[in-house]
């Protein structure tokens, strides 16, 4: 009898370890994406085309196209953004050189200078990053299994995560709803302020029944493990004070090219036109 029990313990223990091993190997889509993100962050230079679109009931609220060139070896970045809503178009160029950001806006002669050396966000340590990574690993365990990977003929991988309604964790849904509601209220307060630095979107004032309907992430990772393309789509629905239903769709489309081959040429900035501009203050 004892031998039988010991055999049962041995076999079931081995089977259990085997299944644990195979379940752990399942999350390849998640790991692939995580590794690709890390690799992409460590790239020395890249050119990113970033398109953002916000729609309300299929009507475009605001669109923006940015080209972001980054060269972290020489610490030179440039961003040129074109934003447009129904009626207006605005272009803006930003350059980072000599440790400072310079902002140039179409039609304005002055150059705004932002001092980033005092930025407190740079104190991230590697240790903290590891802890956060562990935290995210465990907290998203149920989502990880939902990530699908497809390999294309050219060796690229397409990673997809598509969450609808009840698949979106309750806390995440509640928090983002809270943020949307607050964003609407803050926008209300700021309307009179009119700093006019960016084009404003005519965002519908959602009042009740706000919920996140869909979150979809599609990423394409190339053979070198860099992210080449990333599409994020978020659908939020809600009703305004007049009980009209709004379906707001945010889509962000990122295309990255020229990894480690991008060169950014510093621009000449005339010192007499520079105005100091402190971020977050007037």
């Amino acid at each position: 009898m004892n031998k039988k029990i010991l055999a049962a313990i041995g076999i079931s223990g081995a089977l259990m370890l085997g299944s644990v091993y195979s379940i752990s190997a399942n999350t390849s889509g998640y790991d692939l994406y995580k590794e690709a993100l890390k690799k992409t962050h460590s790239a020395e230079s890249a050119t990113l085309n970033f398109n953002l679109k916000l729609e309300d009931n299929k009507k475009s609220l605001i669109t923006s196209q940015s080209i972001f060139k980054s060269d972290s070896v020489n610490q030179v970045n440039s961003i040129s953004t074109r934003m447009s809503n129904d009626s207006e178009v605005s272009n803006m160029n930003m350059y980072k050189q000599n440790e400072n950001w310079f902002v140039m806006k179409d039609g304005l002669d002055t150059v705004y200078k932002m001092d980033t050396s005092k930025n407190p966000h740079h104190s991230n340590t590697a240790e903290l990053k590891d802890d956060v990574e562990n935290l995210i690993d465990v907290m998203t365990k149920n989502l990880q299994q939902q990530i699908t990977v497809a390999e294309k003929k050219d060796g690229n991988h397409v990673i997809e995560l598509n969450l609808t309604g009840k698949e979106i964790p309750l806390t995440a849904n509640a928090l983002s709803t809270l943020m949307i509601k607050h964003a609407v209220m803050i926008q209300d307060n700021n309307d009179s302020d009119g700093s006019g630095f960016h084009i404003k979107a005519d965002f519908p004032e959602l009042d009740h029944d706000i919920t996140v309907k869909q979150v979809k992430l599609t990423a394409q990772v190339n053979k070198e493990n860099y992210i080449e393309q990333q599409l994020v789509k978020v659908v939020v629905t809600g009703k305004d004070k007049q009980d009209m239903t709004h379906e707001i769709v945010l889509s962000a489309d990122l295309n990255a090219t020229d990894y480690n081959q991008t060169t950014v040429t510093p621009v000449e900035i005339k010192a007499d036109k520079v105005v100091e501009f402190e971020h977050g203050k007037k």
Binding site: I5, S12, S19, I23, Q146
Partner: peptide
């Protein structure tokens, strides 16, 4: 969501084998 067949087999194997393991040790 969409249940993957491979995932069902893996987790069911885990649940069955760990149950057997705890059960046999307990019975022992």
């Amino acid at each position: 969501g969409d249940v993957s067949f491979r995932w069902i087999i893996q987790t069911v194997t885990y649940l069955c084998s760990s149950f057997t393991l705890f059960f046999s040790i307990g019975y022992y």
